[in-house]
Design a protein around this nucleic acid. Structure first.
Lengths: 225, 225
DNA sequence: TCCTGTATTTGAACATGTTCAAAACACCCA
DNA sequence: TGGGTGTTTTGAACATGTTCAAATACAGGA
């Protein structure tokens, strides 16, 4: 069905529908866009939209996948830029914000169900796992190339934690109505700085017991979550 | 309109509808319950439901208000119980879990829009402010009566932070599918313990610069959020 | 070229949240 | 008591996401 797009023409139709949807979502938002509009814009009947996408929301998933693919090279080059961890992380996050900017209005639809990790569209769901893991891998790379000493026990969890941190920033950014989202920019700058400093502190022998406790919490939270 | 329920009979009808809705939501979940069912169960026409509630979701808000009112005395007595801060916080959180337990299935509907602080139903929205502030006040009381030294600069923000922490636990609890939600119980116990210990540490003079930085972040995040 | 099976496409029909004009009701005043 | 005014209630109509049986297009073999 979806995973095996049979013919080339079919794949083309699918893309036509997805593009029409994204375009409309962008211009008028997710809720304001009707399936009839999307089908109309794509020049197909309603049923065709449902032949390729299980639901209106599944189209947002389509966007998510598309976005993930298009951002990959941008992220790669962001990581290649000079600088240490802080700079690399900043560049990485910057890529996301820039890419998402034109879609700000409808990105909310993607994150609407974030609170429910069992909802397919949640960034924590099984369905979004592949995208999430690729994303986490880029944080792992930032850590490797950022030349920071990371305590061994923390190392395994750190990429995931950074990803989570970045997710938090994205949520903040979405809700941020200050002009040009200055508040997000401020928050990003300061928190990133703090984060890197804390990371240095975390390596101190004195910190070992605290680290253990926190890691224990993380492990409880992650059990088949 | 809604704020001024004119006659007593009207208020009664409103309550009948709300109770029917909650009952159905509880038994079959929010999405599975139709407005026609609710109206039917309450013995009124569909239109009546919309006369009293702006939307299906507004009924969830009705539940939220009802719940908040009913929990108030329970929380008060939880706070009066013996013990220091950790015990009091545990008791407070325990009240919430116990009260929400029978509604677990549909509570998700309340928190579905949490990620969007502009959505009326979000626990961070303007519409839920009254409930939120009352709730935060109970954390303030726990702090007062828990007999802990809290650095002055932190004091103002601490109740809100504790409320946020508790909110996080509730989210975790909602998504927790372990039998009896053991994982949440474990997470609550350990994190609460850690939290109180950190609070003690936070008062150390050594910690002042770190505290300042964190407070700065909090202030950026809270600007007319 | 014609036939057959599969992939694609169609659009009417359906379910359900929501709106709204009209009806029913309640209460007050002359 | 009768009329007027505001509140409450009704249910048909609407909008829109979704389903599905039927129609169509198409590929490959006879």
């Amino acid at each position: 069905m979806k995973p095996a797009p049979a013919t080339a023409k079919a794949e083309e139709t699918r893309l036509r529908i997805l593009r029409a949807a994204i375009e409309l979502f962008r211009n008028q938002g997710f809720d304001q866009t009707t399936m009839r509009e999307i089908a109309g814009e794509a020049g197909v009947a309603i049923g065709a939209a449902y032949y390729y996408f299980a639901s209106k929301e599944a189209m947002v998933m389509g966007f998510y996948e598309l976005a993930s693919g298009e951002m990959a090279p941008l992220i790669a080059s962001a990581l290649a830029a000079p600088g240490r961890l802080e700079a690399k992380l900043r560049a990485l996050i910057e890529v996301k914000f820039r890419y998402f900017e034109p879609n700000r209005a409808f990105l909310g639809a993607l994150l609407r169900h974030a609170a429910d990790p069992h909802h397919p569209l949640s960034p924590f769901s099984e369905e979004t796992r592949a995208i999430r893991e690729a994303d986490i891998a880029s944080f792992a790379r930032a850590l490797e190339e950022g030349e920071v000493r990371v305590p061994k026990d923390l190392a395994a969890h750190l990429p995931g934690l950074l990803w989570l941190y970045q997710m938090g920033l994205i949520f903040f950014w979405l809700a941020d109505r200050s002009p040009g989202q200055v508040r997000t920019a401020r928050l990003t700058g300061r928190s990133l700085h703090l984060l890197v400093n804390l990371l240095k502190l975390a390596g101190l022998p004195l910190m070992r017991p605290l680290r253990r406790t926190v890691l224990e919490l993380i492990e409880i939270a992650q059990q088949r979550a």
